[in-house]
Amino acid sequence: MKKIKIINHKHYLMLAFILFFIASCNNSDKNSSRYYPNISKNNADDNLKISYKSVINLYINNKKIIDIASRAFVESKQFNESNTILQIKKDHLKIENDIKKYTSKNLIIIPKPIYDLKLNQTYLNREASNFYLITLLKKEINNQIQLIDSIIKTSNDEELKKIAEDSKKNIQHSSKKLESINKG
């Protein structure tokens, strides 16, 4: 009879241990949202607030524009043209900085962009190489405006939308100035 009581105590002890383990696991789930605020627990893959791919594409496109603007600035021969290109580069460096702040705050890792500007060397060696670079710059800026529009429409993250809207205003202003260069 004493053997039965000992077995019962072992079962009770094991049951208490299991209940303690389950309670501690439930407790850690409550604290996990503190460490990962942007990921919801229900279908984490489906309900991400941030479109990582859009942010990365925006960053890569922005880097392309900065690189093309740098090259166009070196090639430019007129003060008005150089000043506009320099302003575009400054605006896009600010956008790059905003994206980096946003990604570090939201724990997004942006890989080092690998892209080819695909500059046509035949056009770059001609007298009107800057016209070619400005045309390419306008094309990339229009691509970025489309990308920003899609972020504004599809993103659930208000901070990302604000960055996109502010960037769009600056980009559109720069784009108008760029249009006046080719006309003038």
Rank of each mutant, 00 (worst) to 15 (best):
F73V: 03
I22E: 03
I88T: 14
K139M: 05
V55R: 02
D166T: 12
E81Q: 07
L19S: 13
K176G: 07
L147C: 00
V74N: 04
E179Y: 10
I152M: 07
N142K: 08
I68N: 00
S82H: 00
K168A: 06
S54K: 05
P37T: 07
E140H: 05
R34Q: 14
H173Q: 09
N38P: 01
L119R: 03
S32V: 12
L15N: 06
K77N: 12
I68P: 00
E179F: 10
S150T: 09
N62L: 03
S51K: 12
N57K: 03
N61W: 00
S28A: 05
Y123F: 13
K90E: 15
K63A: 08
L19Q: 07
Y52I: 15
K153M: 08
L133N: 09
N125M: 14
I141Y: 00
N120K: 09
N42S: 09
I66F: 01
L13W: 02
T135E: 14
N80V: 11
N8H: 05
N57P: 01
K168F: 02
T154M: 06
I99S: 04
N26C: 13
K53C: 10
F17L: 14
K139L: 08
S40H: 03
S104V: 14
L178I: 12
F21C: 14
E75C: 06
E127Y: 13
I65Q: 01
A23N: 09
K183C: 03
F17M: 10
S180C: 06
N125P: 06
Y59V: 02
K94N: 13
D149W: 03
I4Q: 14
N106F: 12
D98N: 12
D67A: 10
T103Q: 06
D149C: 01
R34G: 06
I110T: 10
S51P: 07
S33F: 11
